[in-house]
Design a protein around this nucleic acid. Structure first.
Lengths: 255, 255
DNA sequence: GAGTGTGAACGAATTCACAGCA
DNA sequence: TGCTGTGAATTCGTTCACACTC
């Protein structure tokens, strides 16, 4: 793929690669914690649940940070991926919709380790507005649920911001519109509906119902496996259905 | 490509298509509720957030259920997709890990409309075992949290089963192994770790941290858009980043 | 005329296989 | 020798464009 004039790296990392960078970052952190200083593509691939070839191709998009015959320096690679992903700066998260899921996400304690923190909680219900929510985590913090008519004010002060929508389906598009209006450029939705956003706004949507239905399909149509032609070809059979359509998002929301 | 001998339909629906079927099903339900009897590919595509061409190609994998010059019969199409996805039978869900997220998912009231119901709640903590959880939904139901050493017994009686893992990262692989051991063939994990399952078991993983990091990347690297070359090409600019890597799972866990 | 169904063109992502370097 | 980096081949998915049918 031809030379590029801009800087060093081809300034076009495939979306599929970007979606896997967090995986690598997490695996690297674990390796680092375990005291490892270098890893080979095979080891890191195993720890990330991808193939070695894929890992090398992905990393090649960031530049050449490996040493032939040796592997990758864990610290260096962590830095490079972190720089791409933006984990060098702190990101604020605003959660809209304080039902079961919203509350659970608010109290999730894993934000800090990934460079995020919950900055505000919002709901439309008068019954919830004004209530206090205590967040778990290193420095227990208490936030007051605010009304969704204050969204613009709330977002105004804090940047960069990621908006998380955990409302029911019906109000979701309206909330989404108001977030965009207020200047939010990245939105993660858990609402069971299709949302549309203008150009320039990144939207990701996660849906429990859809995930369950996809699993139901696979259970109904078990693979008539033409897979194990060769004996024990690819080591630990991590993934079942070959490369799954939506590269399953690893990492999640425990506790 | 190439004729197929088995039955009617090419018995190989692409994974990407399968991941979108739930979207279509949801859109169809909405249209049906609105009293519509037929839809064109354009309308259904809009309601599902995909392109008309994609929709037609996807549906063509199921067979020819449209009428040229007219469109699709909403009821027929709903049936056909439902049959593929397995929404004709009831699926049981077992949730392991009754922390914030597990509790939220347990109380989620949207299962019934999609053919699922929560059959059991499990946790390892003695503090939680024995506690009652009241599920929302049409017929309020109360489940008692059971110990994870009972997993085999719990799963034994109820089939088909989908296992949902909402534990922290560390115990997740162990829980996963025990679910598989007990006969579960479909697993949805929210734990922030890579899980491996043997061949024949379907695994999907959803990860809040990963989703946020992907959004952070996109915010850091805004598109130098070579997109709007043609004036108002594709109507409502629903998606920002073209076909997103992981076809964002629509539908979710509100309330 | 209107809109489906589908081959064919296109593009993206993965895998292969090997050259090149420590 | 061992492992990275990467063109080439391949597989997979999407988009196009149009023949066909109601």
């Amino acid at each position: 793929m031809g030379e590029v004039l801009t800087g060093r790296v081809p300034r076009t990392i495939p979306d599929a690669t970007i979606a896997r960078l967090p995986l690598y970052l997490r695996a690297l952190t674990a390796l680092s914690d375990a005291g490892l200083a270098t890893v080979s593509s095979g080891e890191l691939a195993d720890a990330s649940g991808v193939s070695p070839a894929q890992l090398r191709k992905d990393l090649s998009h960031l530049g050449s940070y490996g040493v032939r015959g040796v592997g990758y320096d864990v610290a260096t690679l962590t830095d490079k991926i972190g720089a791409q992903i933006g984990s060098t700066e702190w990101w604020s998260v605003v959660i809209v919709g304080m039902g079961n899921l919203g509350s659970a996400l608010a109290r999730y304690s894993g934000y800090a380790t990934r460079g995020f923190h919950v900055a505000a909680l919002v709901d439309a219900s008068p019954a919830l507005i004004g209530q206090q929510v205590t967040l778990d985590g290193p420095d227990p913090q208490t936030l007051t649920i605010r009304g969704d008519d204050e969204l613009a004010d709330i977002v105004a002060g804090i940047h960069p911001v990621i908006g998380v929508i955990t409302t029911p389906a019906e109000p979701a598009q309206g909330v989404c519109d108001r977030l965009v209006e207020a200047g939010v450029r990245s939105i993660l939705s858990f609402a069971p509906t299709v949302l549309s956003v203008p150009d320039g706004v990144a939207l990701r949507a996660v849906d429990l119902g859809q995930e369950l239905q996809i699993l139901a399909y696979h259970q109904q149509h078990p693979r008539t496996d033409p897979l194990d032609l060769r004996p024990g070809a690819d080591g630990d059979g991590s993934d079942v259905h070959g490369p799954m359509t939506s590269p399953p998002a690893r990492e999640g929301v425990p506790s």
